[in-house]
């Protein structure tokens, strides 16, 4: 059974077809990577799924509900969490308050004017921070965190509404190789434990080949390949438009040859 279903999605910018009739599905509990050259339409595709962009045509379905044209906050309320390519938090709040903010919103308590927010959902926020190993930092101003830690807090925020699908746009961008592996391993563990499906874009082939259940490849707005790590690695068209000879990510290429 599929959780997320993308059907013939298209979007053009000033005559250029950024995404062209793209269709794919994410099955429940699946860890699906979307890769492709810069400008292939990954971000456009992503931003249509999370509601930031309206598609020209095609539709997006999640658990039999049509997401097409909904605002990001409405999509979030249906149980879709997301993280950003450039991670950031609410800089004027503590780490804990950042997570509490999401919990307050999840509980529909935004329009409350009297009770101090700092005491609300505190325990649950700490538990979520515990999951990502950031409980100790709960009372620090979030803007003081190192980038890798911001990514972890962002993950805790994304988990606050008990999502059934996580959208992660380049989750490891700007991180060092070990941090990348640690973060994705953490995500993988959490989603397996909680049965969450994940769709993510990624440029680090080491991460993709090590963790993704399935990989789809976009190039010039079209879906050109869909398969497991071995199939994608040996896909001639993918090699041509994306991997090159593979010497800049030697491990994966070594495994392929």
């Amino acid at each position: 059974m599929s959780d997320l279903s993308i059907r013939a999605l298209s979007k053009a910018f000033g005559g250029v077809r950024a995404v062209n009739e793209v269709s794919f599905e994410v099955k429940r509990g699946e860890f699906l990577a979307m890769i492709g050259p810069n400008g292939a339409g990954k971000s456009t595709c992503f931003n249509m799924i999370n509601g930031q962009l309206a598609p020209d045509s095609g539709s997006i379905w999640f658990e039999q509900k049509n997401l097409t044209g909904l605002a990001p906050r409405e999509i979030w309320r249906l149980g879709v969490g997301r993280t950003f390519q450039v991670a950031s938090t609410f800089g004027s709040m503590t780490v804990g308050e950042n997570v509490q903010m999401a919990l307050l919103s999840h509980a529909n308590e935004i329009y409350r004017y009297w009770r101090p927010a700092a005491a609300m959902h505190r325990e649950r926020a700490l538990a979520l921070l515990d999951q990502v190993g950031m409980r100790e930092a709960a009372d620090r101003p979030s803007r003081e965190l190192a980038y890798g830690d911001v990514k972890r807090v962002e993950l805790a925020i994304a988990l606050a509404n008990d999502p059934r699908l996580l959208l992660m746009d380049e989750p490891t961008a700007g991180m060092a190789p070990r941090e990348r592996n640690d973060l994705i391993a953490l995500v993988k563990r959490l989603v397996v434990e909680q049965g969450i499906s994940v769709l993510f874009t990624e440029h680090s082939m080491d991460v993709v080949f090590a963790f993704a259940d399935r990989i789809i490849v976009l190039a010039r707005g079209r879906l050109i390949a869909d398969g497991n790590a071995a199939e994608i690695r040996d896909h001639p068209q993918v090699r041509e438009v994306y991997f090159g000879t593979g010497k800049t990510f030697a491990r994966a290429a070594g495994a392929a040859s």
Partner: peptide, 14 residues
Amino acid sequence: PSEGVAPLIVEQMA
């Protein structure tokens, strides 16, 4: 120079 671009471009950059 190699951050955030596809492997093929990274190779050309090298």
